[in-house]
Amino acid sequence: MAMIKRHWKTLKTAAWLGWQMESNWTQPFLFAVYSILKPIAATMILVLMYWVVINPGYGGQAENAIMFSFLYVGNAFYIFVGQMLFGIFRVIQGDREWYQTIRNVYIAPISYYVYVVARALTQLVIASIAVVITLLFGVFVLGVQISLAVTDIPLFLTILVIGLVGVSAMGVILGGISFLTAKHMHGMNESVAGIFYLFCGVLFPISMFPVWGQFISRAIPLTYWFEALRRVLAPETLQIPTSLTQIDTGLLMLILLSSTIVLVLVSYFVFKGADYLARRKGVIDMITSY
């Protein structure tokens, strides 16, 4: 019981610290604008790409509203992936190299794993706001076809939570690895995020890949997350052959859940292993300077 209380206290304090560090560099209004401008702009790139292709003055292709919904919904939920993967990585790198406070936090009588996960909660909050705004903008301004039935809300929330746990676990894995890397290795987590962007069926069906590409896609749990989210939020996208279409939703959920459990376990052991190695090498508070 005492341990749970201590973890809860760590969780609350670290989440608050994370929120302050993310947001107190400017006025709340500017911070809100900053938080939503980037993802909205990334979404607008896709919107313009679509618009240019169907516009008679440019590409002149037939409208494909289902494909538009497919890429819009995928891109909206990808905000969680980009924000959380980069955010968790930045916790360790930022504390170590930037603020140089990692040694103080590390020797505090708390679980450092819980501390890192709690700091990720801040990213989750910021990403959630951006995702909601992106989806609302899509539905009300761009006419994206999203139809969430009331009876599907529990299923949607279940899928969302499982996926977010999985994304956090991936972030923790990268964060753990960052214990051992110099600060200029930020390309590593950006590359992982980029690989997910490309291979997880975020913007286009994975059936467009050759067989080896589809194999990679199917090996990443997030592919099933995006597919499951679309089935609930935009069921008409099932008309697009993704090569996952024939998988029953129940089985899809089972794959998503089991792979997420594996990811969480892997994240714990990778984090602890990297932590152990970093201590052995004496690099917990290293400063790589460039």
């Binding site: 790409m49 169907i54 962007y197 490309l198 975020v202 286009f204 467009m208």
Partner: peptide
């Protein structure tokens, strides 16, 4: 990713 979108469209 962007090339595949254009190709999908």
């Amino acid at each position: 990713a962007y090339v595949f979108i254009y190709q999908a469209l």
